[in-house]
Design a protein around this nucleic acid. Structure first.
Length: 642
RNA sequence: GCCGUUGUAGCUCAGUGGUAGAGCACUUCCUUGGUAAGGAAGAGGUCGUGAGUUCAAUUCUCAUCAACGGCUCCA
């Protein structure tokens, strides 16, 4: 007999060789039906695998993350089985579960898969799932495994086997499909009731662009149709919130083939948002002791040789323009220009910290396939600033920058973010990172220390640093689950040396400053892309391109409407009047769709009483209000950036 | 950059080897209407671009550009 300990601490005795599934059945049949896998001593196992010694057990169902990923991993095998039956001779690489679903990479030997064929594969998967075949685990000696896949001519699985030791190799078989797999799997294919193959894409073998490209099929499965329907519904909702769709609908930005890929043109509505953001940034930075500067969009080659951009990042810059025998580059970053401003006048310790800020326009040659709406573009406007400080001032300055981030996040209601301490990779010194091993370790330790002292939670990631120093990247998630780096706060020990920057210290000695690069609001492009999804296009009043729309019931009230409009404009409120020959319901509908925060409906009653009937976007009729009263309320709301 | 998909009116989309259609938006007229679509008429497209096949191409083929989904990349 063996002792099985349950999560609540209860201990029961079972025959040796009992399976997790049998344990579940001993509690209740209903429970057993839900079991997808079990966690034995903290490790996920097949529910059908015999237990041979005392253990703790956790029964994993669809409600557990490990249950879901086991379910999706098994679904990947079902996909492979279906694909193999339709495309004999297909070779498989790996098929892991992912955050929402799974994929399987395969070599179809030159044939491609269309959307229609995905539907065929889906049908086959459903057919196979109805057979309810068990996933059978088998431990296989390495020699036998090699023989099996050699006979199949499957170089991919043979490659996988190379990395595995004898004694740890297992095969899983369901129906006619056998795969090299560590497992675990759900008990049988019949549990996979609802199947959706979401997309087909190319993926480099082992993620290396020098390798062959395999076909990757993505899918997601559920234990019942209802959850699949809900998932598809959610995808539809996400589509509506996509910043590219909203950006077009709300007249925020546009692009044009004749202008070029990744080059965003901000339309009047988008420009209002930009101006509001810059106003916020200027106020905030001014209060924090920053000065504003303006620098050109281009510079000569030598500047970027000095900065190190050309040796390290030439591929990401637009190629040079030749003029009078000189090469000029579009700037990919503002820092070199800022360094020249720092260096334009001699600095003493009394000038430190020296903080200069600019909404700088940068151009980066992102590869064509990387471009993505507003999130990855080739011309960007960065909320940039550089702080030149002494080593003693560093901690305080760095922390002040982090505080500024948090202040901004509060204003925008950004609750979910992760600070990531990005470090260098010692193996890539001199290639991706400036070759100053000691300085790297020193500054990394400084940043770590500041973060710990500030009590800000963070994760550390190797190989994500900037080429000139470690940094804090802030990852945020848009409302539709898109994750990206918004803000960045970087330490730079390399460029002060390269630019030979210095200040005179108290001992009348030249001393090299440290530089903090920071961009709490990232770029206009990325940030507004984020905000569009974050607010679903319903901007708070202070950011809304149009704040109030005046809706006269009929043209009889247009003159009064003009009076109200003039009052709003005079108060600095962005307002328009809809004097089209339409019914009020139609005007309201159109204004709601444009997500204008306030509507002032005016008719006979309002005109006679010098009032407006206030309607709030998404919230309906708010009743009639005195004009001066509503204007002062609005001004307050805008000023406080609610 | 690589793999795949897509490209028809401002938007969303239908359609065809014999030079195109709907709804919404737009313009005009009727209607003067009280909180999410009043009615009618009209205008609008060399079917992404270039070449090829064909008597004839928006439709078939190739190339190219762009968008989209991924991969790789992301100071």
């Amino acid at each position: 007999m063996i002792k099985i300990t349950f999560p609540d601490g209860a201990v029961r005795e079972y025959q040796e060789g009992v399976t997790g599934m049998e344990v579940a059945k001993s509690i209740s049949e209903g429970l057993a039906r839900k079991v997808l896998a079990v966690k034995i001593n903290g490790e996920v196992w097949d529910a059908t695998r015999p237990l041979t010694s005392d253990a703790t057990i956790n029964l994993l169902s669809w409600d557990d993350a490990d249950g879901k990923s086991t379910f999706w991993h098994s679904s990947a095998h079902l996909l492979a089985e279906a694909v193999e039956s339709i495309y004999p001779g297909v070779k498989f690489w790996v098929g892991p579960p992912i955050e929402k679903g799974f994929y399987y990479d395969m070599d179809l030997g030159g044939t491609s898969v269309s959307e229609d064929q995905l539907r065929d594969i889906e049908k086959k998967m459903i057919e196979l799932s109805r057979q309810g075949n068990a996933y059978i685990r088998k431990e296989v000696p390495k020699a036998e495994a090699i023989q099996y896949f050699s006979e199949k001519g499957d170089e991919y699985k043979l490659d996988l086997l190379k990395g595995l030791n004898d004694g740890q190799i297992t095969f899983y078989t369901q129906g006619n499909f056998t795969d090299l797999c560590r497992g675990p799997h759900i008990p049988n294919t019949g549990l996979i009731k609802a199947i959706k193959l979401t997309s087909v894409a190319g993926a480099y073998w082992k993620g290396d662009e020098k390798n062959k490209m395999l076909t990757r099929v993505y899918g997601v499965t559920f234990p019942n149709q209802k959850e699949l329907d809900e998932y598809l519904q959610m995808l539809e909702e996400a589509k509506k919130r996509d910043h590219r769709k909203l950006g077009k609908e709300l007249g925020i930005f546009t692009t044009n083939d004749d202008v070029g890929q990744g080059l965003i043109m901000w339309m009047p509505n988008g420009t209002v948002i930009i101006e509001e953001l810059e106003k916020l940034a200027k106020e905030t930075e001014s209060a924090a002791g920053y000065k504003r500067v303006v620098t050109p969009h281009i510079a000569k080659e030598n500047l970027y040789l000095t900065s190190g951009h050309l040796p390290y990042y030439a591929d990401s810059m637009f190629p040079p323009m030749e003029m009078d025998g000189e090469k000029y580059y579009l700037k990919a970053m503002n820092c070199p220009h800022h360094h020249k401003i720092f260096d334009a006048e001699p600095k003493s310790y009394r000038d430190m910290p020296y903080r200069i800020a600019e909404y700088g326009t940068c151009y980066r040659y992102e590869q064509s396939g990387e471009l993505f709406g507003l999130m990855r573009v080739r011309c960007l406007h960065m909320n940039d600033a550089h702080i030149y400080c002494t080593k003693e001032q560093f901690a305080e300055e760095f922390k002040a920058v982090n505080d500024m981030y948090i202040k901004y996040f509060k204003i925008f209601g950004i609750g979910k973010y992760v600070m990531r301490l990005s470090l260098h990779d010692p193996e890539k010194l001199g290639q991706k990172y400036v070759n100053e091993p000691a300085l790297w370790l020193e500054t990394e330790a400084m940043v770590r220390q500041v973060m710990i002292e500030a009590g800000v939670p963070f994760v550390e990631v190797k190989g994500e640093g900037a080429f000139y120093g470690p940094k804090i990247d802030v990852q945020i998630w848009s409302a539709i689950g898109r994750e990206f780096t918004l803000a960045t706060n970087q330490v730079d020990f390399a460029q002060p040396l390269r630019f030979n920057l210095s200040f005179t210290n108290k001992d009348n000695q030249a001393e090299t400053p440290l530089i903090i690069h920071r961009a709490p609001l990232g770029t206009h492009e990325r940030f507004i892309g984020f905000l569009l999804e974050h607010y679903a296009g319903k901007f708070p009043t202070w950011l809304a391109p149009l704040q109030v729309k005046i809706l006269p019931i009929s043209d009889k009230f247009a003159d009064y409407g003009k009076e109200v409009l003039a009052m709003l404009l005079k108060a600095g409120i962005r307002a328009e009047m809809d004097d089209r020959n339409e019914k009020i319901g139609k005007k309201i509908r159109d204004t709601e769709l444009m997500k204008v925060p306030y509507m002032f409906v005016i008719g006979e009653k309002e005109m006679n009483e010098r009032m407006v009937a206030v309607r709030k976007q998404g919230a309906g009729d708010q009743g009639t209000k005195d004009i001066s009263e509503i204007i002062s309320n609005l001004k307050l709301e805008i000023e406080e950036r609610h």
